[in-house]
Amino acid sequence: MTCWFAMSATETDVLRLSNSSASPRQLFASVWECRELITTLARKEFFVRYRRSSLGVLWAAGLPLIQATVLSIVFSRVVRIHTSTSYPVFVFTGMAVWTYFTSTITAGSTSIVDNSGLTNKIYFPRAVLPLVQARANLYGLAINILIVFALAIGFGDGLDAHILILIPATLLLVLLCSAAVLTLSALHVYFRDIRYVVQALFTGLLYLTPVFLPLQRYPSALRHVVLANPATGIVQLFHYAIAGGAADWGHAVLISGAWTVALAIAAVYVHCSRDRVLADLL
């Protein structure tokens, strides 16, 4: 079940279809051949979103900035929290990760159904659609990280070599979200409730992610729940990259990694066996 043809391929464009599953290798190969398609669709996704507003792409940075400002004012007045960096920098770092996490998973998990106009008409691996969301939101994440840098310098926290940790941290974040949306988007074709399950989960999950509170400030009973949250490890890594300081992230990162592996296995399994027949149910 190979599928997608690159223009450059000369004579070997052969599409062979039967009622059998693709191997993971074939799946990876076909998605890899679509990398240009993913980029093009992701750019469209990101830029079309702000097309009609006069401030344009500035909103991508403006919205989370406003959100973080409001939250850090509220939290710093209501509860005194000591963090390794100034509190706004702490909150905004967490928000950058959280924004990517929620927006990718919310849009990604419904992407195959939402794009039925495309999937009913032409074939490319359906796995492309959720991956487009993971890719499109990288623009927003990049903008937010630049704001974090500016804030960290502005509040006198400074930056050091630790920021290199952002590279593996971002990689883990993208992998986790990709695996999650690949699995959820295929399930969503069969179970349309997924959309609401995801929304419901996210309303509570923000308070179980160390965005406003450092992990050690959670009551010990709740700390285990926070640790089980797949986003926690990544947020911790980002905090460590910006603030340096105590390395209390190892445990949480392992849990995020375990989530990623489990979801990735599920994603590969679902898309190998179902990728080509998903359109039948749209």
């Binding site: 079940m1 464009d13 599409l15 062979r16 279809l17 039967s18 009913n120 008409k121 032409i122 074939y123």
Partner: peptide
Amino acid sequence: LLGGITAPTEGTVTVYGRVAP
């Protein structure tokens, strides 16, 4: 089927060449 949008339940479809639907 020829456009590769869905897979057959039985039998095989083989298309040689780049398809423009």
